[in-house]
Amino acid sequence: MAFLEVKDLYKNFGETAVLKGVSFAMERGEVVSVIGSSGNGKTTLLRCLNLLETADSGSISVDGETVFPLSKTKDKSDSAQQRLTFGMVFQNFNLFPQYTALQNVTLAMDVQAKKTLTSKNPFSPERRRALKELREKNEAEARQLLARVGLENKVDNYPCELSGGQQQRVAIARALALSPDILCFDEPTSALDPELTGEVLKVIKQLRNEGRTMIIVTHELEFARNVSDKIIFMADGVIEETGTPQELFDSPKSEKTRAFFEKLSEKVTEDDN
């Protein structure tokens, strides 16, 4: 059984069928890129994985454990816990504006750390000492994470003081902080000025070299080719074609895939003129 198994996901929004039976699998340490024109359900697929949307049917399992559908016996806190299986980096960052880069990263770490405390009495000095230690540990870890995305000098800056590329790197550090099994990116560079995409892509590449399991929805085809073990081409709510970057980019089998690439290259030549 593969590390991540997605089987037959269906999702409708009212009358519109957005996912019409999506199935794929990936191994631990693999990087999978999802490409396709917009409106074809790529975002919806990621949102079903991390349970921001509830799929109508189908199943998702990670490391042999069923993530979706949630078993009826599990309560809501479990579904909050479940989300940590997947990390999520949003197209428009969604950083918390009132917190510094460092606080953005430590917020969820501290919340998780609190759950591990044995003493529940908020006034017990023992608990407060333990909490303080955990906070310090989290802060040190968060500083390291921010250093890894090249922001050691920006830890105390607020999101509004950072460029788009820097904000997205904070968002990546924030997602990494909870060590998710699988990190999802939804067009991580689409909201960025062209000259800022490089710094974000570099961080993702570095994460691949560290062996992170990642699913990346992207329009950066050159990047997808370089960084991915596998490419998924989505069209009209289904996976139209999947294969290694070489297979998919150099000899696409499906008519729709070919049409997608042709349309893109036309656009590129148009832009060049």
Binding site: F90, N94, A175
Partner: peptide, 10 residues
Amino acid sequence: YEAGKVLGLS
């Protein structure tokens, strides 16, 4: 809200 949710906050 969504950023909070995917970070496991209630």
